[in-house]
Nucleic acid binder design. Structure first.
Lengths: 337, 337
DNA sequence: CTGAAAGCGCTAACAA
DNA sequence: TTGTTAGCGCTTTCAG
C-alpha cells in the first residue's frame, strides 16, 4: 500500500497538519480524542514518517558516520557494536564507510558525509597528518579512534599505547628475555609513536641498552610484518634477539610466516608477543600471546563522548580518553634461563 | 567557515537560485560566463550541497542499506566491499546495520530505514519465514544474500548451495570415505535445505545409504557445531563415521573443538570439510579443507542487480542468481584405503 | 539563457 | 486545543 503523508492524514481527518504532527510526535496540546483518531488513521492509511523532511527542517539527521580503513577487521566491528549500543537508544543511526586504507577515499567520504549532513563522525584514519579532516572539524564533532593524527584539541578514544608496549616488554623480560626486537608502525602518528616510547621505556627500566637495529618499521600490513621479520632474521648474527614484539595483528601474522619460512620455531627459537590477535576459534597453535584492546569498551566510550558532544551542553574540554589494554597469555613465549 | 546555501550564492551574485542550481549541477542553459562566476563563488563562500534537501525534492536518497546479522564476520565485509565497488561510482552510498542475529532488531532497522527513505536494501536475514520483511518489499527493492527466506519472486544472490555440498561429499568419497556425517543448518530456510539436498544427492550418486543419525541440525553458531559433533561422537559405536562435513564457519570451529575435547585427531581419526573457513593468516594447523564462497563476486552481482532495479527500466524478472562455490584443499581430510 | 514560483514533507512560532 | 503560516534547501516547470 502506498504510504501517506501528514497532509494526507490531515485531509482525511479534517484536521491541520500541525495537529496531526503534534499527535504523531506525542507532543502536548492535543485533545485525547483527537490523538486517538489520528493514531488510528496512521495505521489505516499507512503513514511512514519521512525522516528526510524531518532532517531538513530540524537540521539534524540523527546519523553518526564511522569511517574506517577495513570493515573486514573484527576489531572495528566490535567497536561499532559498542558505539551502537550507546547511541541507538537515543535515536541515532550509524553509517559505515570503508576506505580500503586509502587516504584519497577518506577525502571522498568526508565530502559525501558532509553533504549528507551527518551529525557526527567517528574516524579511524590512515592519514597521519590529519590534513584531510581539518576542514571538517568545525562542521561536526569528530572523534578519532585507533590512529590519532597530530592535531591539537581533538577528541579521541584509544588504549594507552605506551602502557601496552610496557606490558609486552615487561612480560618478555619477566620471562627472561633481554634481546627483544620490535616491529612497529610509523612513529609519525601518535599510535606508533606511543608504542615505540613504551618499548624504549620498558628496556630502559630494566637497564637494557637499545639496539636501533632491533627496531623495524612497517605500515601495519601483513607484508610489512613479513618484511620486517625477514630483516631481523637476516641481521641476526650481528644483532641477535630471542624475542620479538609485533604491534599489529596483520604484522603479527606476517612475522609468524617469516619465522616459518626461515625454519625458526615459535617459541623454541623465537618468542613472540603480538597485538590485537583475535583467534576467535582458538585454533592457532601454538596460541599467540598478545596485547588486546577492549574494543567493546572503546565503542562505549566513543558513544558516550558522542552523546555529550551532540547534546551540545558544550563543556568543550577535548576528551583524550585512554583505556587500559590487556595481555592475553598464549604459548608463543618461552621462559629462558 | 560557515557553509552557505544556493540562495546565499544567488544573492551575492544577483542571480536566481534556479540559475545557480543549474550551474552547480552542470545543467545546460547557463551562459559560460555565468557558470564561471558561480563556480568561483561556490569556492569563495564555501558552498556545500545539502543532500538532505536534494533527497527530499528528488525523492531519492541515493542510499543503499545493508542489514546483516554480524558485522564482525569478514564474509560480509567482503560482500560489502564488492557491492560498494559497483554502486559507489553511480553515486550511491552504503549504510550498514548490524542486527546481532536478532529478528527483533531486523524489524526495528527495517522500520528506521524505511523512514530514512533508503533507495534499496540488501538483506542477510536470520528470519527464516521472511514475515518481517514482507511489507517492505513494495517500498523498495530488496535483494537477499546468505539466507533466502521462503517468499516467491524475490531477488537474491547466493552460491549454489546444493552444488557446494555435492563438492564436499564428492571430495570425501573420492578420498575413500563412505561413512560421512554432516552438521547442517535448519532446513526450514532455503540455504540449509539446499545444502542438505546436495549432501543426500552426493551419497545417492555413489550408492551410499543415508543414515539419518549422521545428520545433525544446528543453527550456524559455534555452540551448535560443538553440540552436534558431540552428539555424533557419542553415537559413534552405533553410527560410525570417518568424515564429517560442517556447513558453516562457526559450526566448523565448534566441531573441531569437540573433536579435540574428545581426543580425536583430525584428520587421523576423523576427516573434516568445513564451510566458509577464512584462515587469513594460514595459521591454523592442520589447515582446514573448506567450501568457500566467492564473496567479492557475490557483492559485485548484488551491486549490478541493485543498479538494474534502481534504474527502474523495470525488466522485472526476479533474479535468483546462483554463483559457484569452490573447495579449498587443506590438510583436514585423510585419504583412506 | 534567466527568473519566478511551486512544492517535496515536515516543524514551530504565532494567532485564533 | 487547533489552525495558519513560513520556511528548511533544493529542483523544476513555465514564462519571460
Amino acid at each position: 500500500m502506498e504510504s501517506s503523508t501528514l497532509k494526507d492524514i490531515a485531509a482525511k481527518l479534517n484536521l491541520s497538519v500541525a495537529t496531526v504532527s503534534r499527535a504523531v510526535n506525542n507532543k502536548e496540546y492535543v485533545k485525547k480524542e483527537t490523538r486517538e483518531r489520528v493514531m488510528k488513521a496512521l495505521e489505516e492509511y499507512n503513514y511512514v514518517p519521512n525522516e528526510v523532511a524531518r532532517s531538513l527542517k530540524l537540521k539534524s539527521t540523527k546519523t553518526i558516520a564511522v569511517i574506517l580503513p577495513d570493515i573486514c577487521e573484527a576489531f572495528f566491528g566490535e567497536i561499532i557494536k559498542g558505539i551502537d549500543e550507546i547511541v541507538s537508544p537515543h535515536g541515532y543511526t550509524i553509517i559505515v564507510s570503508d576506505t580500503n586504507e586509502n587516504a584519497e577515499n577518506e577525502k571522498k567520504y568526508l565530502e559525501i558525509l558532509q553533504q549528507k549532513r551527518i551529525d557526527a563522525l567517528v574516524f579511524a584514519t590512515v592519514d597521519l597528518s590529519g590534513s584531510n579532516v581539518k576542514k571538517y572539524l568545525s562542521a561536526f564533532p569528530v572523534i578519532f579512534i585507533d590512529n590519532i593524527p597530530e592535531i591539537a584539541g581533538i577528541d579521541s578514544v584509544t588504549i594507552d599505547n605506551a602502557a601496552a608496549s610496557r606490558m609486552a616488554v615487561d612480560y618478555l623480560i619477566e620471562a627472561g628475555h633481554r634481546e627483544i626486537a620490535v616491529i612497529i608502525g610509523s612513529v609519525k602518528e601518535t599510535t606508533g609513536y606511543a608504542r615505540r616510547e613504551g618499548y624504549l621505556e620498558g628496556l630502559e627500566a630494566h637497564d637494557i641498552l637499545v639496539d636501533e637495529d632491533l627496531i623495524q618499521y612497517g605500515n601495519y600490513k601483513e607484508d610489512d610484518g613479513f618484511r620486517c621479520m625477514e630483516q631481523l632474521i637476516q641481521n641476526r648474527d650481528v644483532h641477535p634477539f630471542t624475542a620479538v614484539y609485533v604491534t599489529s595483528e596483520k604484522m603479527t601474522f606476517g612475522a609468524i610466516k617469516a619465522l616459518r619460512e626461515y625454519g625458526l620455531r615459535m617459541p623454541e627459537d623465537i618468542s613472540l608477543v603480538g597485538f590485537d590477535v583475535q583467534d576467535k576459534a582458538q585454533l592457532i597453535s601454538p596460541s599467540i600471546t598478545t596485547i588486546r584492546q577492549p574494543e567493546k569498551m572503546i565503542g562505549n566510550r566513543v558513544g558516550e563522548l558522542l552523546l555529550r558532544r551532540l547534546d551540545g551542553n558544550a563543556e568543550q574540554v577535548s576528551g583524550q580518553i585512554l583505556l587500559k589494554p590487556s595481555l592475553v597469555e598464549g604459548q608463543s613465549v618461552k621462559r629462558v634461563n
